[in-house]
Simulated scan of single mutants.
Amino acid sequence: MSEPLQRLVEMRMPYGKHKDMLIADLPGNYLNWFAREGFPPGELGRLLALMHEIDHNGLRHLLQPLRRD
């Protein structure tokens, strides 16, 4: 499961209000909006759903060791 977690701190949001922000840094209310409205297809949607679960459960701190300096 480490590869998807690593992608959260590497991949940037490709469009929208938070374009170019790391998926791991997206605000919770934006992730909640996707959860209500539907996640996009493909890898982006899977990563947004994963990040939503991490955020919802208060586990963002677990991504810190994966970040590059």
Rank of each mutant, 00 (worst) to 15 (best):
S2E: 15
E3F: 14
P4K: 07
P4G: 13
L5F: 09
L5N: 09
L5W: 14
L5M: 08
Q6I: 09
Q6V: 09
L8G: 08
E10W: 14
M11N: 09
R12Q: 12
M13W: 11
M13P: 08
M13D: 03
K17V: 10
K17G: 02
H18C: 11
H18Y: 15
H18A: 10
K19W: 00
L22Y: 03
I23R: 05
A24P: 06
D25C: 13
L26N: 06
L26F: 06
L26E: 05
N29G: 05
N29V: 10
Y30A: 11
L31E: 00
N32D: 10
N32S: 12
N32E: 15
W33I: 02
W33M: 14
F34Q: 11
F34V: 12
A35E: 10
R36D: 05
R36E: 13
E37K: 08
E37L: 12
E37C: 12
G38L: 04
F39V: 01
F39K: 09
P40Y: 01
P40G: 07
P40L: 06
P41Q: 11
P41I: 07
E43Q: 12
G45E: 03
G45V: 06
R46I: 02
R46P: 09
L47R: 03
L50H: 00
M51D: 08
M51L: 05
E53K: 10
E53R: 11
I54T: 00
I54G: 01
D55P: 07
L59K: 08
R60V: 07
R60I: 01
H61T: 13
L62W: 11
L62D: 08
L63P: 14
Q64S: 14
Q64K: 13
P65M: 12
L66I: 00
R67S: 12
R68G: 15
